[in-house]
Simulated scan of single mutants.
Amino acid sequence: MSFLHPYLPMLKGLAIAGSLINGGTLTSGYRLLPSIYPTVPKSPKDAAKQWEYFYWSMSATVPWVDLATFIAIGTLGCVEYQSDKTALPWKIWASAAGLMPIGWVWVRQVMLVPSGKLLDVAKSSGESKQTLDLLKDFNAQMGFRMMFPWVVGGLGLWASLGF
């Protein structure tokens, strides 16, 4: 893997930028979602439609950035491992890569429940009394989900700047 050594700075930048971009995107969504709450008493369906735009916008970008970041981090871990199996950098990159799938499982196993219900509210012709609870539940779960890219970015910075 010595052919990758000239590209390591670019891969490190991609890994750090990708995780921090997703961390910022998820945090923005987490911070902005409560602005929809006042709409719920007037029209739960309109609130769910506003959330739906947010949901599909994030679904279009976050997974692709996560995948590119994961590939870059995995490559960096492999290159660092082959350079020095006893050194710390490859272990940091491996830890960062290991955290990313936990966030994906969290989305699939936990966040899809309120997401599916909110999408149903947005598409239905009736009004749902539980929309506010679903929005708050989704946002609480987003609060946990957004920590993963921030931690991965921090580990990437540590591995890049510390060695």
Rank of each mutant, 00 (worst) to 15 (best):
L88A: 15
A17S: 15
Y53H: 05
P114Y: 07
W93I: 00
V40C: 10
S124E: 05
A48G: 01
G29V: 01
C78T: 15
D120P: 07
E52N: 05
M146Y: 06
W64L: 13
V79W: 10
L33V: 08
W158D: 00
L161I: 07
G74W: 09
I71A: 11
W64F: 13
S125V: 13
L134A: 12
V65R: 00
D66V: 01
G13W: 01
Y37D: 13
Q82V: 13
R31V: 15
L119M: 15
L14E: 04
T86W: 00
L112H: 14
W104Y: 08
I16S: 01
G29R: 01
L14G: 08
P89M: 11
K129V: 11
L155D: 06
A87W: 06
M58C: 12
I92K: 02
Y30D: 04
M147E: 01
P44Y: 09
K117G: 13
A159N: 05
L118D: 03
G18N: 05
P41L: 08
G153P: 02
A140N: 15
S19L: 04
M1Q: 15
F163W: 11
W51P: 07
W51H: 11
M58W: 02
A87L: 02
F138Q: 00
N139V: 12
K85Q: 09
F138V: 02
F70K: 02
V105E: 02
A87D: 15
N139A: 08
L99W: 04
M58S: 09
L32I: 07
K49H: 00
G23V: 05
I102V: 08
S2G: 08
W64H: 13
I21C: 04
V105D: 07
S125M: 07
L26R: 05
S43E: 06
C78W: 15
T25N: 09
F70Y: 07
S43V: 13
K49Y: 01
E80A: 15
P38M: 04
P38L: 02
M58R: 00
P114W: 06
M10S: 10
F148Y: 06
A97S: 09
A60C: 04
K117C: 01
Q109P: 05
L14T: 10
A72L: 10
Y37P: 04
G98Y: 10
A140G: 07
W56H: 10
L33E: 03
L157A: 14
S19F: 07
A97M: 05
A47L: 08
M10K: 00
A60N: 10
Q50W: 01
D120V: 03
A68P: 14
L99D: 07
P41F: 09
G24H: 04
V62D: 00
L76G: 09
